[in-house]
Structures are given as C-alpha cells and as structure tokens.
Design a protein around this nucleic acid. Sequence first.
RNA 1: GGGCAAUUAGCUCAGUGGUAGAGUGUCCGCUUCACAUGCGGAAGGUCGCAGGUUCAAAUCCUGCAUUGCCCACCA
Length: 711
Amino acid sequence: MNIPKVYKPKTIEGKIYKLWEKSGFLKANPKSKKKPFTIIMPPPNANGVLHIGHAVFVTLEDIMIRYQRMKGREVLWLPGTDHAGIMTQVVYEKKLAKQEKTRFDLGREEFYKQTYKFSMENKKKVESQLRKLGASCDWSRSKFTLNPKISKAVFYTFKKMYEDGLIYRGKRIINWCPRCQTALSDLEVDHQKRKDPLFYIKYGPLVLATVRPETKFGDTAIAVHPDDKRYKKYINKEIKVKTVLGEVKMKVISDKNIDPEFGTGVVKITPAHDPNDFEIGKRHKLEIRQVIGFDGKMNKKAGKYVGMKILEAREKIVKELQKMNLIKKIDSNYKHNVAVCGRCKATIEPLISEQWFIKTKKLAAPAIKAVKDKKIEFIPKYFKKIYYHWMENIRDWCISRQIWWGHRIPVWYCQCGEKIIAIEKPKSCPKCKNSKLRQDTDTLDTWFSSGQWPFTVFGWPKKTEDFKYFYPTTVLETGWDILFFWVARMIMFGIYCTKKIPFHYVYLHGLVRDKDRQKMSKSKGNVIDPLGVIDLYGADALRMALVFGTSPGRDVIISEDKIISQRKFTNKIWNATRFILGQIENSKFQNPKLKIKTENLTKADKKILKALDKTVRLVTKNLDDFQFHEAAQNSYHFFWHEFCDYYIEESKKQFQTPDIKYQTSNILLYVLLASLKLLHPFMPFITEEIYQKLPLENKKKCLMVEQWPKI
RNA sequence: GGGCAAUUAGCUCAGUGGUAGAGUGUCCGCUUCACAUGCGGAAGGUCGCAGGUUCAAAUCCUGCAUUGCCCACCA
C-alpha cells in the first residue's frame, strides 16, 4: 500500500464530506425508535462569510453530534441562516451605495426582493463553508429565518401575544439611532465612557448642571429633591427663567429621584429627550416638548437653531449663554456614560415615538422557574446567576424597527380607526368593510423571530412529525454574548408558545481571542480566517486547536502556532497508520476486537489495552459532561504518548518474535480503530479517511456511524 | 451603584480535597528503517495575599488585593 509520508488534508477533505453527504446518514429520521438528540444550529447571518467564531460553534456542536450519533442516538443537527434585520439592511445599502443608489430609489418591495436574493446567495456560500468545517448537519432541513412559512409562524405568535395582552403599541421614550434611522431595544444599546463638559447654567434664581444645554427648549420643569433645604422655598412655585429665546416661566417640582449631591442639586426636566426625565414627567404630568427630530437635528421649537445638528447647536447655544452671562462655570473633566448604537456606535438619541412593545414580566417568570427547577441546565453553571439577574430585572422589549428588511409587522389600519392583527392580509375592515387597508410600516426585531427558532424550524404551530419527535431540543450551544438577546428570549417564547422548554442544556462558549488575549478585528490585523487555515492545515487541525485547552464559558485562545501543533498531530496519526498498515498488509483481519485473547499477552500488550480502557472511560465521561477540552486532551495524550511513543515502539520488538506477530498486528489495529473512534468527533476527516483504508471485515460504510467504544 | 468571573511553569491555559499537568517556548543529545510536522532527555511553579475548616487545601469557607466582563435612568 502506498501512502504518502505527509498527511495532505486538502486532497481528502472534500471527498470525505461528499461520502458523508451521499451516505444519507446526515438525515435524521423522526420515525426512529431511538432516543433523539437535537441541536438547532445558531443560524449564521446570511450577509457575509464565516469567521473564526462560527468555527468555534461548528466544532463544539459537531463534537456533540458525532459523539451522540456513534452512541446510537437519533441525531438531528438542523442548520439555517438568519436574515439579521438591521445588519443585513446596512450591508445591502452599502452595496447599493457603490452603485450610487439608495433603498428609496428601489422602493420597499424591490429592495426587499433584492435583499432576499442576496441573502439566498449568501446562504449557499455559508452552507458550503460549513461543509468545509466538517459540520455533519442535516441539510435537507436547512431553514432561513425570513422564509414565508417561518414568517407565518412568527405572525401567529404576534397575534396570539396581542390577544393575550402581551404585545401593545404605545408612545414611549425609546432608543433612537439617528444613523440607522430606527428604534432599538435596550439590549442593542452600548454604553461608552466619555468626557463631556458639564455646564452650570443659571435658571432664574437657580443654577443647574447639564451636559445637554441644547435640550433646554424642551424643558418643562425644574426639579429638586423634596428634602433639599436649599431649595425648599421654590418647590411648587413658578420661577422666571431667561433663555436664549427670551424669558419663560417654569415650575419647580420635587422628586425623590433627584440626587442632591450631584451638581447643584437642581435639574432641568426634559421629558422628550431623557428617559429619566420622561419618568419624572409622567409622575408629575408634565408637558412633553420635543425639540430634536428623528434626523438628529433641532426642530422648529428650537427657534433660530432649527436644522442644526445637536453638537453644532450645543456650541452655538453655549456661546450665546456665555454672552448673556448665564453660564456660571464649566466643568470640563466630567466623565459619564453615553448610550451608543450597539451596531454603528452613533450616539443614541432618546426620543418619544410610537412603537410596539412586549410585556416581558409575565414571560420571564416561568422562564426563571424552568431554570430554578433544573429543567434547563447551564454549562458552565455560573451563567445561571447572570441569567437570573437579567431576567429578574427585565424591562419591556421594544420590538418594532423602522427598517424594511425583516418580518413586516402583521397589523393593518383602516381609515375608520380599526386596527386589524392578522397572519395574512385581510380583505377588508371587519368594522366598516372598507378594503383600503394600510399595513404597519415597521418590521419586527430580528430576535423576535430568532427567539422562536427552536420550534418554528419544525413547522410549528402545526404539530408536525418533526416537532413531536425532535422538540424540545437537547442542547443549545452558542456564545455567551447572546445570552440575553437570544437564549433568554428562546426560553420565554418556548414556554409561552409551546408550553415546553425549548432545550434541556445551554452550553455557552466564549469569545475568540489571539495569543495576547486581544479580540480579533480587521483593524488590528490579528484575524484568523478559518477558511484560509483549513486550506493550509486542514479542518481537523483547526477544530482540535479550537477545543484544546478551552473550557466552557471561557474565551477561546487561538493562534497559528496552536493550529500548527495540531496539524502535527494529524500527521502523527497519519504516520502511525502508515506503520500499522505496513505491518499487517498481508493479513486479513476480522473485526479485531474478537481476535484479542486474554492469554499470552505481553506486558506491553496488557499495558496498552489497560491504558485504552482508561482512555475510553475518561473520554466518554468528559464528553457526557460537556468537558470537550478534557476529552480532546485524553485522546491526544493516549494516541501520541501511550500508543505511538510506547506501544508502537514495543511492537517493533515484538515483531522479532514470530509467535506473537499476529497478535501484535491485531492489537495495533484494534487500538488504532478504537483511537479513530475516540478522535472522530474532534477530527472527523482524517479519522474517516483512515477508517476507509483499514482492512476490517463487517466494516460500516462510514466511521461516522460506527459504534462508540464500549467501556 | 449592583452582579459575574479570573489570579497555577517564560507564554496560553487545564486541573477543583490526598506525592503539581498539557500545549507552546527554552536548553542538551539524536539524518534509529511510521513520522525531523519526528525521537530521547533536562531545566522551570512555596498554585495572588492573609486567615479558617480538615488527618490532609491549588482545590472548601471568609476577608483582602489585582485584572477582566456584564447589568443599571445619575442629569
């Protein structure tokens, strides 16, 4: 047999993947009598290429899937892609911008059509890349979050929640991104530490501190703490305030939310432009006066400052106030947190707007209970505490977005004032029979549909065969950074929609970082491209490097060196095989296990068989406990140091004695086969390729469906 | 302000009650017929600090220090 000296993954990986795909073993069978093991893949965004973070989840999930398949479970790993609302819209708009077009040139329908086509093309690309990583998922069930069937299920939920009083429409202060031109949920907002000047401005007889003098035209009261002795005499009185637009009268109110220690203990209340002030305004029934528009510019109410951008207006107003001697002092070292758009980092403008919201408290209660009752387990456990902390303080969720790409809100309005919530467009208004209905222009937050992914993929609300057999799913594996965005929402939706938890285990992995613990980013130039790495060193080396020395929940440290060291391991496996096959070339073996006798074993024979037993136990236990890094190291150590360094070397001596030649070959092959099985979940390509070469009788079509070694 | 976690070999990290581990790096020696993407050997840690529980603590408890992250409406 002529096997090359160096393992070349490139020549075999594509071929092996085709073998798996053609074998039909990737396809799950809901009629199976076996116990199901289901993972729904976190759908990658259908707007770009896979990055190293995707390689992490593919590796971890594929390890579980391949292990359970070999253990005899009916496995389903269901792939899909996400339409990724705002993100994809931004990506496609950038594409249009290159042709000097905007989405408005195309119109809503055409824009949607083109973005859909774009997403479908990307879906294909993403899926071919997942294959390169070795993902043994069921392509026949692949889904897309914006598929019309999925949409119907999403609308069904919307309607049900509306009818149950869990969804409402209201005018609230929301996070507005002036650049993305949409409302955002609280989760989509980041906070940046920033240094801004704090202006001490004279308001009649009082002085107050603010970083946003430009919102002063929206002030509808001045507030102090009720017990603040300095200002007691002003409470509930009106004071005259000189401003850049003339003199106004303003009421001084008291509210216990005012911190007397901050600034002068006096605050201007601008209910239209500050969430805190909005709440105070509600309590005191203050007028809401909006002075900044959705374009992030001053509006008519700002008088001569109309049309100016916020910072420009601020500068001009400050100058004018200084001229009028209304600024007492400026603290230029003031540090505070500023809300920015999680995606584009533009400063968030809190604005009053009519949006759709979900009442979350009622959904959160059973979701908390499910975890407390251990129906859902987190790996690692400490994420439970983080989950509780967030869930117990959950606030209402703004689900409407002012974008075109996504599930359009299934609500129609009639001139008569009737609001119709329906899964499909109604023919006419049930009240006045008017057929001219106008659909809500907003779309749903992408997480509203992702949150229902574990069951919408099975055709829910229909109780399909797949739904009945595969749901609830077994493990949900994803990065901890989307614990609130996604995992928490899936648990809430799952219980609400299906009355069942969506999964039993939540395994969370960390962020991928480089050798110096730096985040990977294009600007830092430290990005590791998984496809480039596969091209150079093979998918097995990449996968092994990603699990080696990485425990659950912790960041994944990866470097080219680490991948190279695992490529060396693939070569080691390859050459050990080369040696073994050379020794047994002329013999035909039965399933080797049957041939191993317990008598007449040499010391080395006994030692390696014992070590193998121990390794099988360890690897199995660690895989059962989600300790993939441990399992990987157990197999690695056994194969390299116990099998290669020790037993293969001993076997060379044993081959000098004719009596034990046959037995020695047999043990070599037996241990090799067992090792391939143990390593297969981690390094599927090379192990499968070697399996295909082994001279075994009763060989299965693929190592992928071989039986896991028995303890 | 509240919370979560980390601190172990030069570096990156495992280990979580019973004589300190891996990968990588360093040093020395090997063109030994599977593999130089290799083989053999060596050096290197009072497991952040201080208490406590225990026959026994890197491991459990308490406090402290340092670092990282998350949540939160301080103008």
